[in-house]
Amino acid sequence: MKRILPFPLLSATLFTMWVLLTGFSPGHIVIGAAVAVIVSRVMLALQPEPSNIRISSAIPRLAGLVFVDILRSNIAVARIVLFKPKERKSGFIHLPIELQNPYALATLAVIMTATPGTLWLQHDARNRRVLIHVLDLVDESEWVDLIKNRYERLLMEIFE
């Protein structure tokens, strides 16, 4: 099984996408299956390290949290753009971080960049810190606390 389908999740996604986009017919199911098996083997050449995600209740909780935060920060950024408050200043923060798993770091990077108002710039693995840019930088420690308590703990639960 492992030899034929080295990445079962990737194959399953490719197959579902193929069938959904082209329609349910026996021919497309055969082609989709062939594509899923052959194309997912391309990943073998990249030799990604195993991700061992732990399936737990942390995943839906994280998804819900991200959705709520996207809504909230959308409103905050919209207010800044429309009304341009005078006392606002933006700036860079060095955020200390304990996560080391590359997948967890990538997830955190995508979450933070997708949330308007924060932007992930650079991860420094040696000093274990991340450079982020914040649009509405009132209190630096508040942002650090927010990210550490809200996301980092959940991500550690999922990935480490």
Binding site: V77, F92, T113, A114, P116
Partner: peptide, 28 residues
């Protein structure tokens, strides 16, 4: 919402500030 995000491209002053508003469009 997308228009507000695009307005941010015009109204904010530095590049690093301008990177933030275009995320309004693709998310909400």
């Amino acid at each position: 919402i997308t228009l507000i995000g695009a307005l941010g491209l015009i109204r904010l002053n530095s590049f690093y500030e301008r990177v933030h508003p275009p995320t309004l469009g693709p998310t909400l």
